[in-house]
Amino acid sequence: MVDFGGWELPVQYRPGIVEEHLRVRETAGLFDVSHMGEVLVEGEDAEAWLQGMVTNDVRSMHDGQVLYSLLCYPNGGVVDDLLIYRYDPRRYFLVVNASNAQKDYEWFAGHASGNVRVTDRSADYAELALQGPKAQQILQRLTKFDLGTIPFFHFAEIPDLAGMAALVSRTGYTGEDGFEIFVPWTGGTDLWDALLDAGKPEGLLPIGLGARDSLRFEACLPLYGHEISVHISPLEADLGRFVRLDKPFIGRDALAAMTAGGVPRKIIGLSMEDKGVPRAGYTVRTSGGTEIGTVTTGGFSPSLGTGIALALLDASHCDEEEFHIDIHGKGRRAKRVKKPFVRKRYHK
């Protein structure tokens, strides 16, 4: 067990990180992500207000849709990344990172204006994520609701899922098809047991934090504090497609200036040519030895069987093919590769 933003979570269950990781890619895995924060935004002005708070285009959403977005400081640094669920233009459900939940709530509440009410609902919900190509097949055993009618990045309120009311979205943090399921806090353990039971034929496994990280890393999904932070803007993190500079929002001017002046650093994908495993914080150099940045996430890819890294580098060197990473005092060769490391297999 490790402390994760004040929550005690297992790094791995009995099978271990590699087996858990591969099970999600091959069939399915179950994650307890009840530590995630939930914030409810309600009121006549909810849509207009939220549009001015986040980087992505809230106004383009329709009811039942989910949108990935970033929340920025005026200087373009990142407060957090989040998922926005639209019930209707007067009611949104926001899902934020556990480690930032309190900060995010205070940020939203501190900026609330007009007819907008912001409520921290983190204590009310348990959240489970069922991920992998067999996720729908397993989840369907617990409800009459036709899960095939929920498109990618959409959600439904299901009155009876294993006997309880649930909010179910076709979203996740693995690069695989799958669902994230919100139920009342007290229902979390019952749903956990019901899902593990329902998934027995497919060999469904519970998945710890270790594989949660390696799965999202292979799919190049950002992790706050690594690829995005107070000091790393969404543009540097290569998340420009979630930033709409054609509308006002907090941080917009700084990000527009960064776009105009040229984004100074960029996150690229690297794969080890030499042996060794890159880790977050390791120094990255040109093949000539000039220091040009650091690894934001590194590790051994269970799917590819090699060491891989996301690295934040001076933009002027990002197009080079070969780099050196300082690993245990030696420069090890790595080559630039396309992101994501592993192809996403969403249900679209």
């Binding site: 042996k275 060794g276 051994f300």
Partner: peptide, 8 residues
């Protein structure tokens, strides 16, 4: 340690 992937 869990799954060992490389020994330097």
């Amino acid at each position: 340690m869990g799954d060992v992937v490389y020994v330097e």
